[in-house]
Design a protein around this nucleic acid. Structure first.
Length: 484
RNA sequence: GCCCUCGUAGCUCAACUGGUAGAGCAGGAGACUUUUAAUCUCACGGUUGAAGGUUCGAGUCCUUCCGGGGGCACCA
């Protein structure tokens, strides 16, 4: 598979590959047992004084990241997942042949080293190379060893290069892994059972979004990639699993933005015999705990309780408009005036517009916005306070100017749920493309009886954005969606 | 889909009002036994995203297309 290589860089590496083979060295050996992390070597000799040598031998492996040649002695930097370790190669230790082979290595080659720990006169912990092996020859030049890889497009399209070249990228995705682990651990310890529900669904639901459509050949019909796990998880609560969660990918067929990737990771949990107030407490405690476990040190204060405000008051504070006093589309549109385009927007859409344009960007510290209009929330239970007519028990948590989580006291009255589906169908007939399709199987499940239940969904990518201070979801997704 | 903006060597970046593309790193040859972005010498490295156009002359100006980033729309 040859291609243009204007600088002859590929040819030079190919030539080295052939030279290795000619010398009887396998450039792609099968395994290299007994490797320890470079961080382990650093930990074991943290107190070694400058200029001191030891008898301690280690086998490490990783990518050759830098080289400082010196004729009869050379220093090399080896990078593995845990960090970086300096190697010292001496002609008098290795002998002529091995020294020449080591000096002919390219940056980017994967090597394994057996060596003896010492600390150089300049204070750098170093492994003197007693023996080494090429573990995989690199046939392409790596990114710049000092500047790393800066080109945003290449960083996203070839994330492996970003990970090779940029230590903060490695740290970020290790952080992401610890965040996901901590979320799972918190739910496991709280007695939730992790489940897996279908990604390929004959009918989508659980959120207001357009789905991806795919073809199921054997059944000769279209299926949908899930937009949420909500409805299947609630069927499991009906089934008696009581406390369930799923952490996985959802897919929404919508535009790209710094806050939206068409496939994203969501955790949803459902808890029998609990309400949305319980979920708010669980969310606060969980995020606070996760932040502590991963060593979050940013500006955001996750200490419970978070600020709470009703949606009505939040919009009133930021716009002067009382949406609950203006329950008709036209009255609300008139109050909005020319602040937002109101044509072709129905009442719930206008409320949502006010929230996302005037309130959401201002919510930097963690904030829980409670009590939404029923029209925006087809799966949330009506407010227990009869005075709160048209309002459901739902909250969204916001942080760093974006939505982090969405929760409600789940609607478990099957007749009410049926009426909500019917309302969604009416919105669809009026042209709304993001309505909730009618789900008879879900209704049948509710008719068997679902306990009072509180549920919550939280965007994992956004949690990682918040805890890492990243402003684009593409920074926290390994392979974000890109054009061909 | 619309608007703004960016695209130069493998990587990181230069190139005044249009004057014929340059450096560091990497790679090649060589020197060097404690370097830390090692240093030094020499040579090499380009379809300036693509295709057109204006001009005596285009990296630079214009048009279209491709891709990235930001914004709008869509959007949770």
């Amino acid at each position: 598979m040859s291609e243009e290589e204007p600088s002859g860089l590929l040819a030079a590496r190919r030539a080295k590959l052939e030279r290795l083979r000619a010398d009887g060295v396998d450039p792609f050996p099968h395994a290299y047992p007994g490797v320890v992390a470079t961080a382990t070597v650093h930990e074991r000799h943290a107190d070694l004084p400058d200029g001191e040598e030891t008898e301690a031998r280690y086998r490490v492996a990783g990518r050759l990241a830098a080289r400082r040649g010196q004729g009869k002695m050379a220093f090399l930097d080896l990078v593995d997942r845990s960090g970086r370790l300096q190697l010292q190669a001496r002609r008098d230790v290795l002998g002529e042949e091995a020294m020449e082979r080591l000096l002919s290595l390219d940056l980017g080659d994967l090597i394994g080293v057996d060596g003896t720990a010492l600390r150089s006169r300049r204070g750098e912990l170093t492994l003197r190379v007693d023996d080494f092996a090429i573990l995989a020859k690199s046939l392409r030049p790596p990114p710049d060893k000092h500047h790393g890889l800066q080109d945003v497009e290449t960083r996203y399209r070839q994330r492996e290069l970003d990970l090779i070249a940029n230590e903060d990228t490695r740290a970020l995705f290790l952080l992401r892994a610890r965040i996901v682990s901590a979320v799972r651990r918190a739910l496991d310890e709280a007695g939730f059972v992790e489940v897996e529900t279908p990604v390929l669904q004959p009918l989508y639901g659980g959120a207001l979004a357009r789905p991806f459509v795919t073809r199921f050949n054997a059944l000769d019909r279209d299926f949908y990639l899930r937009i949420a796990t909500e409805l299947y998880l609630k069927r499991l609560v009906v089934g008696g699993l009581e406390k369930v969660y799923e952490l996985g990918k959802d897919f929404r067929n919508e535009g790209l933005s710094p806050k939206h990737n068409p496939e994203f990771t969501m955790v949803e949990w459902y808890e029998a015999y609990a309400d949305y107030g319980d979920q708010a407490k669980r969310l606060e405690a969980l995020v606070h705990s996760v932040a502590q476990q991963v060593g979050y040190e940013g500006e955001l204060d996750f200490t419970p309780p978070w600020r709470r405000v009703t949606l009505r008051d939040a919009i009133l504070d930021h716009t002067g408009i009382d949406v609950l006093a203006l329950r008709s589309r036209d009255a609300l549109a008139e109050a909005i005036g020319d602040r937002l385009p109101t044509e072709d927007r129905n009442w719930p859409q206008l409320v949502d517009d006010l929230l996302s344009k005037y309130v959401e960007p201002k919510l930097i510290q963690p904030t829980i916005v409670m009590d939404y209009p029923v029209e925006l929330s087809p799966f949330a239970k009506a407010h227990r306070d009869p005075a709160q007519e048209g309002v459901v028990e739902r909250f969204e948590a916001f942080c760093q100017g974006m939505e982090l989580a969405n929760a409600f006291t789940e609607l478990n009255d099957p007749d009410d749920q049926r009426a909500r589906f019917e309302a969604q169908v009416r919105y669809a007939e009026a042209g709304d493309e993001e309505t909730q399709p009618f789900d008879e199987l879900f209704l049948a499940a509710l008719e068997h009886g679902m306990p009072p239940t509180g549920g919550l969904g939280m965007g994992i990518d956004r949690l990682v954005m918040v805890l890492s201070g990243r402003r684009s979801i593409r920074e926290v997704v390994l392979f974000p969606a890109m054009r061909d």
